[in-house]
Nucleic acid binder design. Structure first.
Lengths: 254, 254
DNA sequence: CCATCTTTGTGCACGCGTTCACAAAGACAT
DNA sequence: ATGTCTTTGTGAACGCGTGCACAAAGATGG
């Protein structure tokens, strides 16, 4: 589908569905764990269980990448790790900058999951002069006056915004102007960016609110059940160990 | 996905689509900002722009809650804030515990977006005895030995896991056993929980990987554009061509 | 070489979510 | 009251994602 018939250049992703792309990192994590245990091959059933998804979905996801499995056997773990890594672009080095070194920014700087996936924290940037030079996670914080220079000197195309909401848009504008084309936004604000720039956002408060909704609903149903108003909980094979979210992480494309 | 099995035509149907629920906090944030600026009413067009969504989608979302707008005028800001808050269950107090007070846990404890939305950090829990008693964000850290007691004494139903991946499942099991029915998981692991427990996950590394995918795609397209004058309609293979650079595997299955 | 068994890859159907487009509803002016 | 104008609420169409179910492909054993 969508071989060449591009209508709008908004969401053409070379045939790979967005939902599949969002799951690839999940598979990669499970595969990496298997690889470290020197497991040579894995079936779609096993891998799906490890990744917390349906096996049919996993096979269909992989089918978008190509036919990398062997029928009757399964998938070669190392080979699949490589293929997914390449597909995600993790075989190259991605320098990232983190702007806003508060509690969250510091946590991100210390987060080990980045380096192990090809991401390199090229610089930490903060607007507070008192922070300048102070090392966080072994990296000296630089002042935001030098933001443009830092971006350009390091060839940074991915920026992480961990500033207060009020500063986020201004920081975003400067990042984009300096050449950043992908932004991960932790500030609770809608960022407006020119076309061609990707923004993904993570809002911790929003996640809790979604949980609260379901929590309230559960409490309400329970009350209704003791009242005898509703029939007993019909067995829902819906999702035993997965939330109502299905697959989407805590993030939505902007 | 959500129950919705009762085919109630309209009027107070609990069948609010999951996608809508995920956007309600977004609307609420925009509405709160308007409320603080004492804006009395807002049209779907304006609010949609502020929330970063399509106005038709916004109207449809609100239609699931009821008819809270006035045609020709728009929506009453204060009224809508209340209705959405109530729908999300934010009119009640939600005590939450944060387990794992590392960099991320501390950042979460300090995060201001919780308290302002009806969430109260009831306790901080860590496995490190050296942390016990040490105040973080003004709250003394408690040792995980007391986890069950803390949960029960505070009537906690929402737990946040910010531990290393290795400890997450064990913590999760203890939380669930103690009565927690909603979990926000920051550990890069798939949690398995019994039916009736909601899990939402936030994986920072996954978000970056998704950005990297799109970034790579953008770079590839740009190269293709400057390189060949042939628009995207050229590649018309279904599954044959893999990488934009035709880079074939360096690693073959043994 | 043939039979059998395992597991992939996928055609198909279904349901959810998004978007369009417009009638209905109300505000407002005359 | 009546007409006009604005904006909501929603029916309907469409596209995407999911899961079922099965044929094809290859391994394995005799």
């Amino acid at each position: 589908m969508a071989t060449g018939r591009t209508h709008r250049p908004a969401t053409r992703s070379r045939g790979i569905p967005e939902a599949t792309v969002a799951r690839l990192p999940l598979y990669l994590r499970a595969l990496t764990a298997l690889s470290e245990r020197s497991v040579p091959t894995v079936s779609s059933e096993e891998l799906a269980a490890a990744a917390g998804v349906n096996s049919a979905k996993l096979r269909k996801d992989f089918s978008y990448l190509g036919s990398y499995g062997t029928r009757g056997v399964g998938y070669d773990v190392e080979y699949l790790v490589y293929q997914i890594s390449r597909e995600l672009g993790l075989t190259q080095d991605w320098p990232v900058v983190i702007v806003g070194i508060g509690n969250l920014g510091a946590a991100l700087a210390n987060y080990g999951g980045f380096a192990s996936r090809g991401f390199r924290v090229a610089a930490l940037i903060d607007a507070d002069p008192a922070m300048a030079g102070k090392p966080v996670a072994g990296i000296p914080v630089q002042h935001s006056d030098d933001l443009e220079k830092i971006i350009q000197d390091n060839g940074v195309s991915i920026g992480v915004i961990a500033t207060p909401a009020g500063a986020a848009q201004a920081v975003c504008d400067r990042l984009v102007a300096a050449g950043v084309t992908s932004i991960l936004n932790f500030a609770p604000t809608v960022l407006s960016v020119p076309e061609g720039v990707d923004v993904r956002k993570v809002d911790l408060s929003i996640e809790l609110q979604i949980l609260a909704f379901h929590e309230q609903r559960k409490a309400g149903e329970e009350a209704a059940n003791t009242d005898g108003a509703l029939p007993p909980a019909a067995a829902r094979s819906d999702s035993a160990d997965q939330g109502p979210d299905g697959d989407m992480p805590a993030v939505m494309p902007a």
